[in-house]
Every structure is written in C-alpha cells, then in structure tokens.
Write a protein that binds this DNA or RNA. Structure first.
Lengths: 130, 130
DNA sequence: CCGTAACTGAAAAAAAATTTCAATAAGGTA
DNA sequence: TACCTTATTGAAATTTTTTTTCAGTTACGG
C-alpha cells in the first residue's frame, strides 16, 4: 500500500492531507474500479460532497483514474499501469498487466501530440460466460 | 455516409427503423464523439426519452460506441476502427487510425477471455497547447 | 500556539437519467 | 390497399446523480 507516497504528493502540490481525503484514498485503494457507491460505503464518515470533491482533486492530480466501463463512473488508483478486460455479458471487469501496445508505434500516432499516458479497454466475453 | 447499412442492421435484428431513430443516427453521424446535448440539438424533433432509448439500442447492437473522455458521456458511430488523442489541457479530442496494438499480444492477455473489440485512449497535450 | 487560507458538510438546487402509460405508427399480412 | 399487431414514442412525473452555497471547522506554516 503506497498511500504514504500519494499523501506526500497531495501535500507537495500545496493541498492539505485532511483525514477525509485520506479516508477516501483508503477506500479507493481497497479495490480497483469501484463505483462511487462502493467508495462511499467504505468511508461512511465522509460527506458525499467531499467524496465528489476529493475524486475531482485526485483525478486532477493524476493520482486516481476515472473509468467508464459501461455503467456509471468508476475509480481506481492510477499507480500501476494496467488495462481492463470487460465482459459484455456479465459486466465483470478484470485487469491485465501485460500492455499489448507496440511502444514503437505509439510516439508516431500523434504527430506533434505529446503523449503522457494511455488507457486500453478490451471488450468480449469472460470465461465464465462462454 | 453508411447510414443505409446501419438502418439495414437495425431492421435485420427485428427493430423498426423509425424516423426518430434515423434522425438520431444522422445526428450522431454528423460528428464523432458528440455529447448528448450535441446530438439532441441536431434532432430537435425527437424527444429526450427517445434519444436515450435509441442510444441504448444502438450501443447494444454495437453500432454506436459510448465514450467517457473526461466530461460527460459521448457517442460516435462504431463503423470504423480508430482511437482517440485527448488533450488534458484544452480537452480537445482528435482521432487516429493507425492502431498501435501489437496483434500478437492481444489474444494472449486474457487467457480464456474471448476478445471482441478494444478501445484505446491516449492522453497528453495537443500541439496547440504546447 | 496563532492566524489564515483551505477545507468540510448539510441543505438546497440543478442537472441527468429513468419510469410510466396512453396514444401512435411501422411493417407484415391478406 | 386496408388492416392488425406489436413495437415505439413522448409528455409528465419520478428518481438518481452531481453541483452550488455558505457558515462553521481545521490543517499546517510561521
């Protein structure tokens, strides 16, 4: 759990590491790609408004990623580089680490676009649904 | 413009090609990755509920893709295979055709996951913002 | 410690999405 | 062509989600 590092980044950028923000962060780190509801239920003491604002802040800082995998928005820690396998039948989401991007081609795609990050979602059917 | 083909697919699956659905389809095809508001303003005669339902239907049929590029949901025709360059400064969205995925690696990522499609978003800064 | 600017949260408001249901119309059939 | 059946539409109401407001609170540098 690298929460310490993330908290350090929050402070480093001039924001306060309040208990509420830390609680939201812990909630997010408990499980990847959670719904808002899931996050909220993991930090019941934090007001809804603060959860929204904290997610905005952390997304803006690039510490948290916001996903749309079909239903409502989902959130996850942006620490590690990984991608998603989304089952179109049951909606389950799995992750995989091995990035199938060809690194030689990525810099070319954009011309003078400065690439900073990327996000890949793979859709299909999971083994259980086959 | 391949609307005829898409309309054929709607009918082929047993759904009716109503004027409202065609109007929504034309609105979507007018510009890629539009917001709901943009689509609505391009087919003012179609009620909001019908727009929502049509987008659900077309997404379900795989004819339209739903995106989350940062702000609200966006939609585009799913005909052609392309990906997105999203500028984190100004929010502009560009497309590119050349898919940088290594096709040899993709089948392996999922184990027994059956891959049907994928979606790639590249984040960074556009040339204008540099 | 103190002071201050950043932060929180309850309530209210606004925005977005969904449900309901009576009326309508597409598209097959005779 | 007229008809019939069933899918579809849309206005209104409802529900859900997100944002705004603002008075009170707190983190943290000095």
């Amino acid at each position: 759990m690298e929460l310490e590092g993330i908290i350090g980044k929050i402070r480093g950028r001039g924001y306060k590491a309040t208990p509420q923000r830390v609680a939201v962060l812990e909630a997010i780190s408990a499980e990847q790609h959670q719904s808002l509801e899931g996050i909220r239920s993991r930090c019941p003491g934090v007001g809804m408004v603060t959860v929204y604002r904290t997610l905005d802040l952390l997304s803006g800082l690039g510490l948290v990623r916001r996903l749309d995998l079909g239903d409502g928005p989902r959130y996850e820690l942006a620490e590690d580089h990984h991608h998603h396998l989304i089952c179109e039948d049951c909606g389950s989401v799995a992750e995989f680490e091995q990035c199938p991007l060809d690194p030689r081609q990525l810099p070319e795609v954009g011309g003078d676009f400065e690439v900073r990050a990327h996000s890949l979602e793979v859709y299909g059917r999971c083994s259980a649904c086959r």
